[in-house]
Each structure stands twice: as C-alpha cells, then as structure tokens.
Amino acid sequence: MSDFRSQTSEGALVLFSGGQDSATCLAWALARHARVETVGFDYGQRHAVELEARLRVREGMASALPHLADRLGPDHMVDLTGYGRIAESALTAEREIEMGARGLPTTFVPGRNLIFLVAAAALADRRGLGVLVGGMCETDFSGYPDCRRDTIDAMERALTLGLERPTPIATPLMRLTKAQTWALAHELGGDALVELIVEDSHTCYRGDRTRRHAWGYGCGDCPACELRAQGWADWTAGR
C-alpha cells in the first residue's frame, strides 16, 4: 500500500504537522525504524491549533503503540513565520478559501513542501537520520503541485546533490485515498490509533476545534474537512 523503498538508515525524520496524514506517517515510520524523530513548522498558519494538536498526538502515540514507544525520539520545531508572510495564502492570511485565477486553491502556500523538505533535510543531516517521511499525497489532495511524487522525486535528487549524501523521501500515503489512509492507520495501530487520530489530530483549515464529528474536529466545510469526512465515510462504509 505504501510508497516506501527499503532503507538501511538508522533512523527517520517525520515531517509532522499533527494532522491525520502526518499522524499516520508517524505510526508508519515507528513500525519501520528503530529511531524516529519529528519536525514541525510554524509558518504563521491560521490553523495554528495544529501546533498544539501535534504535541497531543505525539504524546498519545505511546499509549496507542506501546510496543513502539521507545522508538520515538525528540521533537523539533522550525520557525518559518518569515516565509509564511512572503508566501501569503488563505492559510496564512484572512482570505477566502476558493479557487484562484491560476486554477489552484487559495489555500496553496507556494513552495511550502519544498521549504519544509530543505529544512528537514538539513536537520536530518545534523541528527544522523537517514530518511525523511512526509504525508504528501497525489490521490486525495487539494490540488497542490508540491504534493505530487514527481515534485518529491525532484527534491530528493536536489537534496542528494546539495548535501552530497543520499536523502530519500518516503511518502507512504502518496497513492492512497483518504479512506485507505484511515485503513492504514487501523492496520498499524487498531482502534486505539484511529481514536487518537480522530480525537487529537487536526486538519481543519479554519482551525475549528468547537465542532466534533465522527471523524474528528473541524468546521466541516473547508476542503481539508471535506476530504477527511468523505474518507471516513468511505472507510467505515466498507468495514
């Protein structure tokens, strides 16, 4: 189901936002690597509640996956608020969430994943971690060109050249639907992991933690909520 290529690295660095996808990727990495660290990014996002959610999800992993708890190492936070001001979008400023003139949603933050990967690769190099793990997906996504595997492959080549060391980027969700992502979480950690993701992860672009749905908290009508809700409905219908 995943886009993982066998690694001989001693550890992994997970790009960890605290959302459904990155939480699933963290569990996936813990199942495959003896040493896993996480990195988050503050880029001035409107839904800054995800920065709090990521800490709750990290802490909850020990209970959801007790047999893997000793593999989870330190967390790191990178301040990219300056970049967020440059790459203004509906995720970093008070703008309507709609389709823009270029055919991309206004939630698209230009180059976000590229910036994240450069910063993560530098950190991984210093921490001695051999593989980056990201939740990018080109199956169920909001139309972001930096979520495509072609983009990730190009970044992998550029980072390998720029750091003069192999810099593989694993994207286990790349070709999964949101329903399959829920299924993968259940495969990795059963009901305990699914409940952790439902209760503590955050996806809503508007940062709404006041409304609780079967699939978790959110406004229910932004693109991120719609994808998560539809994936939940499809997965639970097929169980």
Rank of each mutant, 00 (worst) to 15 (best):
M1W: 05
D3T: 14
R5F: 15
Q7I: 01
Q7M: 05
E10G: 15
E10Q: 12
L13H: 10
F16V: 09
S22A: 07
A29V: 12
R32A: 09
A34M: 00
E37K: 06
G40K: 03
F41K: 00
R46A: 10
H47E: 13
A53V: 08
A53H: 01
R54T: 03
V57H: 06
M61W: 00
S63C: 00
S63M: 01
S63G: 11
P66K: 06
L72K: 15
M77C: 07
V78Y: 05
L80I: 08
G84Y: 04
I86E: 15
A87N: 06
A90S: 09
E94K: 11
E96G: 04
E96Y: 00
I97A: 05
V109L: 03
G111D: 01
G111T: 13
N113V: 09
L117P: 00
A119Q: 14
A119Y: 06
A119S: 13
A119I: 01
A122T: 11
A124N: 02
D125E: 15
G128D: 09
G130L: 12
V133W: 11
E138M: 10
D140K: 15
S142V: 13
G143Q: 08
R148H: 15
T151M: 11
I152D: 05
D153C: 04
M155Y: 07
M155G: 03
E156M: 06
E156V: 05
L159F: 05
E164C: 09
E164T: 13
P168W: 08
A170P: 01
A170E: 10
T171Y: 01
K178L: 04
L184G: 04
D191M: 03
D191R: 14
A192M: 00
A192L: 01
L196E: 05
V198Y: 00
E199L: 03
S201W: 09
T203W: 04
R206Y: 05
R206S: 02
G207K: 02
G207L: 10
D208A: 04
R211Q: 14
R211W: 02
R212D: 01
H213I: 04
H213S: 11
W215A: 14
Y217N: 07
C219W: 04
C222T: 11
P223T: 12
A224I: 12
A224M: 08
Q230S: 13
G231P: 02
W235V: 09
T236H: 02
G238V: 09
